[in-house]
Structure formats: structure tokens, C-alpha cells
Design a protein around this nucleic acid. Structure first.
Lengths: 223, 223
DNA sequence: TTCTGTGAACAGATTCACAGCA
DNA sequence: TGCTGTGAATCTGTTCACAGAA
């Protein structure tokens, strides 16, 4: 029974909670208090309890949460109780690394095809799959009922690939290209951009310098 | 002159704004209104104006923002006006792909060393750099005044690598391992987790099914 | 006691609404 | 008329505080 809708901020933390719970299960624990989950994930215990209050599984006071039950519920909420099929488009350096990534399969994500636009790459093997032409996307998607797509092509090609994915009926897209892509509202798109992440870290560094330990010449420029 | 502190949420969008501005500059535009930036980035024009109001550069009404000036200011704020040195630890599939990623250099990030714990990999070349043993980290960091580190090792090794980076004086860390790592407050850590991103997409898919277009058997389970 | 569950207070971010200048 | 700049209103998320069950 889902009581209240789960806020987006909570959803972002659910995978981490789930991982902490699975680690606990591996360690033989049957029960885990919010404080232990919080420490593993790096948030406040209050936050964990608030987040878990949106789920049906209740903890028991003085003891904690039932590990097995919470793993089951978070898995179901995240849709990991059934296999999800994924296609990847773009087999450059990054695409190849993503295809080989071992973190997909354990969560129930099955990579069913790897595609590219470059004719020279068609037929070469990546992660045990023969690379197919992008033009086969619709056919493959229909045949294997593919739901999710990973975009690992250059920025200039990303929108075209996304359009093709949408046309092929995919409903969730993970975009590694450094551009914003448009998609209809019923298609969920998330972007992962390495360059953006580095730039945000770089900001921290700059902000720190601006704030405290800065040379007088720099103060003059900015303050 | 920095008037007000820049909110974190604004910082997350600054790299995207900067990219849109650089695209405009490449297209020969000298000026760009908030609406155009907003469209390129995928946010509301209101949001763009509010964000840019934290900067010193002002737009001109009826016209837009000065492209060149905004690029200069965002670059300075993000610390991209001076070169940032980066080391990468872990040369598995992902590490290799990251080392080869072409998106770093254009933003002023220079990869100065690639390290790994596996003796068999030491000396092999990755992205034009000979792989060095992790134990050289402190020496390299001191010599090249390295500020940023990228962690691309398995989860079990991530905390040790982060500890070594902190000890070596790095102040910003980008962690690709699927675990939360501890670091002192003066060190900025960001995590990028492919599995988490896929799981959040998977949630969207499940939530949609729960909400509307769902088969009755599934309703019974959950509602 | 220990730890959950949650209303209440607070903080932060987004959206609205509109005044005002080119 | 088009577009900026910004207070005000709203919404979302986090933290606090504490009542209450095991």
C-alpha cells in the first residue's frame, strides 16, 4: 500500500539506502536502525526516517528496520523486481566502458543491444554483443520490448538519437552527451555530464579561495 | 564585484549556461536573451534571469546579455580561467574511458597522471600517460600542485584512495565508485553513479505504471 | 533506554508578477 | 514593445523536537 507519493528527493536516496541494506544483509544482519543506514549513506538519521516514512514498511522501535522487507519494498518501488531491458547507442571510449560496466546486471538491467552510426564499427563485438546499425533501433526495441536507452554519442548527434529512441517507444533515457535534449513529457531523461561535475568541483575550489585563504592580489580583483 | 553569495542550485546550472553562451559565440552572436539561454539549457527564462542576477554582469533590456562578458564571468566563477590539474586513480574500463574523454581539456582541466594499484598495469600507457603506482600519489600531487582527483576504482578500494588523495592535499574529488566515502569538510566530494541514475529512471517507469496505464493484476498487488 | 514516526519550524529553490529601462 | 531585474508568494526539502512503542 502506497500511502503518500514519494518525493523526488527521497527517490534519489532510495538506491543508496537499498545498497546499504544489501550490504547489511550480506553481513548477516536481519535488522538495521536508521542511524546505521544514515552513516553508510552519508545523511542524517532524521532524513532516513523521514524518507522511509513514505514507504509501507515500518521499523520497530528500539530495534530498527527489517532488512529483508525494506530491500523487497525499495526494489519494487525502483522497479528492480523485474528485469529491465536497455540498449546503448554509441560505442566510443565511453560507450564501450558503459557496456562493460558490471554494475548494471546485478540490479536487473539487461543490455540487449549496442548500436552505432559508424559503418566501420558494425559487427565488431562490444561486451559480448555485435554492434548493430542505429537504423535497427526501432526493430530491436519492438522485438525485445526495450524500455531504457543509454546515449553515449557526441553532443551533435545526441538529439537525433533521442528522437529515434522516443520514436522506437523507449520511455527512459540516460544521456551522457554534454547537451540538453528535448523529449516528450512521458519520456524520462536524465543527464550525466562529467565535465559539469568537474566544473562544480572547480567552483568549490575557487569559492574557497575567494572566501578565506586568498592572496591579496586576488582580493583586489574580486572584492 | 560579487554582490550576493551564489546559491548551490545556481552553481549547478552555471556550466550549462556557459556552454549555451559558447555555442552562441561560435554562431557569431554578441548578445543573447534569457529566453534563448533557457531554451538551450531546458529551464524557464525566469530561472535564468534569477540565476544571472547573482553575477556582476547585467543584461540590457530589450536586447539580452553580453555573450563575451558572461562567458568571462562564468569562467572566472567556475575557476576555469586558470588551468586545473587532475589525477585519475583506477584504469579499468571506466578509468580508461575517463582518461580518454575529450571534454576535460577544453574546460582547462589537465590530466597530469594516471595511477593504479595493480602492478601488472604499471607502465602501460593510458591516454598518452604511463600508469604509475598509487603509492606515488603524494609525490606527484606535490610536484604538480594537483588539486583534483578522479576515483575510478571498485567500491571496496574507494575509501582508501580517497584517504590517500586527502593526505596528498587534493581538495576536490570526483568519485565514480558506487559507495559513499568520507572526507574532511574542506575537501569537496561529488559522486557519479551510473547504477543510481538507471535506478531513478527505472522508478519513473514504475511510477507511471502505478499511476495510469497499468494492468489490473498489478493494481491488485500495489493499490 | 533505544529508536521510530511525524508534526512543526525552518531553509532553500522556483515561479509569479510586475515595475522599469532600452 | 521586448526583455531585464527583483520582491513576493509558493512550493519543496531538511532539520528539529518530542511523543510513544518495544
Amino acid at each position: 500500500v502506497t500511502l503518500r507519493p514519494i518525493p523526488p528527493a527521497t527517490v534519489t536516496r532510495l538506491p543508496a539506502y537499498r545498497r546499504a541494506l544489501m550490504d547489511a544483509a550480506d553481513a548477516g544482519l536481519r535488522t538495521l536502525p536508521s542511524g546505521a543506514i544514515a552513516e553508510a549513506v552519508g545523511v542524517h538519521p532524521d532524513q532516513v526516517r523521514k524518507d522511509l516514512s513514505y514507504l509501507a514498511t515500518r521499523g520497530t522501535r528500539g530495534v530498527g528496520y527489517d532488512v529483508r522487507a525494506l530491500i523487497a519494498e525499495t526494489s519494487e518501488i525502483l522497479g528492480l523486481d523485474e528485469e529491465r531491458t536497455v540498449v546503448l547507442v554509441g560505442v566510443g571510449n565511453l560507450g564501450r566502458a558503459l557496456a562493460a560496466y558490471e554494475g548494471f546486471a546485478p540490479q536487473g538491467f539487461r543490455l540487449v543491444a549496442v548500436l552505432d552510426a559508424d559503418p566501420a564499427l558494425i559487427g565488431t563485438r562490444v561486451a559480448g554483443l555485435a554492434v548493430r546499425p542505429v537504423t535497427d533501433l526501432a526493430r530491436i526495441a519492438r522485438r525485445d520490448r526495450v524500455e531504457m536507452g543509454v546515449v553515449a554519442v557526441p553532443g551533435a548527434a545526441a538529439q537525433d538519437v533521442v528522437d529515434a529512441m522516443v520514436a522506437a517507444g523507449l520511455t527512459a533515457i540516460l544521456n551522457f552527451a554534454p547537451v540538453h535534449v528535448r523529449a516528450p513529457a512521458h519520456v524520462a531523461v536524465r543527464r550525466v555530464d562529467l565535465s559539469t561535475e568537474l566544473q562544480m568541483l572547480s567552483f568549490h575550489r575557487s569559492a574557497r579561495r575567494r572566501a578565506g585563504e586568498l592572496r591579496s592580489s586576488e582580493v583586489a580583483v574580486r572584492a
